[in-house]
Simulated assay, not measured.
Amino acid sequence: MEKHHLLRRDPNWHPNGCNLCGQLGHQAANCPNGTINWRQIYGDEAFILRQPIYYSDIVQRQKYKEDNMKDLEERAQAYAKAKAAELGLSWDEIVAKAEELRNKDPAELIPKAAPAPAADDALPAGWAVATDPNGRQYFWHKKTQKVQWERPSEDTPIN
C-alpha cells in the first residue's frame, strides 16, 4: 500500500478496505461515507479503465503511416512532373540537377561574402551594415528598423 494511504488510514482498518472510511466493499472513489467527492472533482472519465495499447498496435500504426507517406511521396512526384511539363521543363533534367546538387559539398553552395565596402564608401546618416549567418551583408536604418539588401543612397526613402 502506498505511503500516503498509510498515513491517512486508521491502523485498525482492514488492508482491503476503503482508504477514506475503512469499510470493505468499495473503494475510495465510490465511498458513500467519505468527505471528498472524487467523481465531482475529476469526473467519471477519471474512473473508467482504458484499453491497453499493445506493441502490435504500435507497429500496425507505424506501417500504416509509412504506407501513407509512400502514397504522399508518389502523389507529390506526380504533381511535380505535371508542373514541370506545364512549364515546359524536362523532368529528367530536374532530377539530374537535384542529384548533382545532392552530391556537392554544402560549402560550395553557400554564396561567398561580398567584399567589405571601402572606408570612403560611407553610409548615409542613420544607416548601419550587418552580416547574416551566411556572410551576406544587409543594411538597416537605426531609427525605423527598416532592413534591405541593397546599399542605401542619400535619396533612399525612409518610411
Results as ranks from 00 to 15, higher is better:
111 P>C: 10
40 Q>V: 13
67 D>N: 07
106 P>C: 09
68 N>P: 00
158 I>Y: 01
47 F>Y: 15
132 D>C: 08
101 L>Q: 10
71 D>Q: 09
146 K>M: 14
105 D>K: 03
135 G>C: 05
79 Y>F: 13
121 D>L: 04
104 K>P: 00
83 K>L: 12
12 N>S: 13
116 A>E: 11
157 P>N: 13
137 Q>D: 05
83 K>T: 10
12 N>P: 01
125 A>H: 05
18 C>R: 00
24 L>P: 06
23 Q>T: 07
97 K>W: 12
136 R>M: 08
47 F>D: 15
67 D>L: 03
95 V>Q: 11
59 V>F: 06
98 A>R: 12
63 K>T: 00
65 K>L: 06
157 P>K: 12
75 R>H: 09
113 A>G: 06
149 W>D: 10
140 W>Y: 15
107 A>Q: 10
122 A>M: 06
36 I>N: 02
157 P>H: 14
62 Q>K: 03
53 I>N: 03
130 A>C: 10
24 L>F: 09
17 G>M: 01
50 R>D: 11
85 A>I: 14
48 I>H: 12
37 N>P: 05
43 G>K: 13
7 L>G: 10
19 N>Q: 08
66 E>P: 00
79 Y>I: 11
92 D>H: 10
131 T>E: 08
55 Y>E: 07
97 K>P: 01
17 G>N: 02
76 A>T: 07
41 I>P: 05
153 S>H: 08
114 A>I: 02
99 E>T: 14
105 D>I: 02
117 P>K: 01
29 A>C: 12
33 N>Q: 05
94 I>V: 15
91 W>D: 04
55 Y>S: 09
22 G>Y: 01
141 H>E: 10
1 M>F: 09
101 L>K: 13
126 G>F: 07
142 K>G: 15
100 E>K: 15
149 W>Q: 10
133 P>F: 06
148 Q>N: 13
2 E>Q: 12
94 I>F: 12
23 Q>P: 04
47 F>I: 15
39 R>D: 14
57 D>S: 02
129 V>R: 09
113 A>K: 03
108 E>K: 12
8 R>N: 11
78 A>G: 07
